[in-house]
Each structure stands twice: as C-alpha cells, then as structure tokens.
C-alpha cells in the first residue's frame, strides 16, 4: 500500500463479522443452486452426487475464512475534519478523497446485520457524476454520527 497521503484507520472488527455473514448468505444461495445442479447432473449422467455441492461448499468456506478478512483489511479510512479519505480494493486499489465543503448531504444507515455488530454506513453525496456518492461501511455508529455532525456543521457554516 504505497499510496497513502494520510495514515488510514482500519474498519471496526465487528464489520468483519458483518461481511462474513453477508458472504455466508451469498454462498448459501450458491449452495442451493449447486444442489439443484447436482441433482440434475446425477439424474442425467453418472456423476456421483455431492460433487458440485462439495466444490461450491469448499470454495465458500475458503472464501469466508480467508478471502473475506483480506477484503476487510483492504479497507481504510481517515477523517481529517476537512476531508474524508476512503481506500479499498484488492485487484485495483481505489483511494477517494472527498473535501467536506463539497458534500451536498449525508446519510448514516444501519441494516439489521450491521445493527447486531454495532457498525454503520456513512454515505456522502456530492454533486459529482462518477462519485456522486461515497459510501464508507464498517465504522461504529458513534463514529459515523460524529463525522456526520462535523460535516453538517461545516456545511451550514458555508457562506452561501
């Protein structure tokens, strides 16, 4: 991670659990499809049952145990009172800087899984086109609200 103009903070530990649960839910759906494929294959050919299910299941377990933490570790953020920095991505690293003065409005959202882990998602809306919203997931609800309040006070300070 060579590119880091300001030191970044990792996401909350609890968000790792959120990511794992979400990933597990995704893999469960994949597993259901795999079961159907398995049954179909076993019916049409003489491939032994459990072949596809086993492969998908193994992949899912590997992903949940090893890959998800990796993805989680790739996230980082920093809030410097004047701008929000967000970095993510494994294959292509993306690093976004949003000046607080450019924020149009702010959302703090919390889904059911996030609520159980006490993390929240902070969403900044800008007037831009490519990055019209910058979302930062996996910070504590308290932190998200603090950032929101700072940004809000800065926006309302605005001379217009």
């Amino acid at each position: 991670m060579a590119f880091e103009p300001v030191p970044l903070q990792p996401l909350e530990r609890g968000y790792l659990r959120v990511l794992r649960i979400r990933s597990a839910l995704g893999w469960l759906i994949a597993l259901a499809v795999a079961v159907a494929v398995d049954v179909f294959l076993h019916w049409r050919t003489d491939i032994s049952p459990g072949f596809v299910v086993g492969a998908v299941g193994l992949f899912g377990v590997v992903s949940i145990i090893f890959l998800v933490p990796r993805r989680w570790r790739r996230w980082g953020y920093a809030f410097t009172d004047r701008e929000l920095h967000v970095a993510y991505g494994w294959f292509t690293r993306v690093y976004t800087v949003v000046p607080v003065s450019r924020v149009q409005h702010i959302d703090v959202s919390q889904g059911p899984i996030e609520r159980s882990a006490n993390v929240a998602t902070l969403i900044l809306h800008t007037a831009g086109t490519e990055n019209s919203l910058v979302a930062l997931s996996g910070i504590s609800r308290q932190r998200a609200e603090d950032i929101r309040d700072v940004i809000r006070s800065r926006i309302s300070d605005a001379p217009w």
Partner: peptide, 11 residues
C-alpha cells in the same frame, strides 16, 4: 468545481 478526487491503481 472539483467534487472529489479518486486515485486508482491497477495491478
């Protein structure tokens, strides 16, 4: 008129 800045780095 700069809204945000993004740095992207591929492999």
């Amino acid at each position: 008129n700069v809204q945000s800045v993004t740095v992207r780095r591929g492999p």
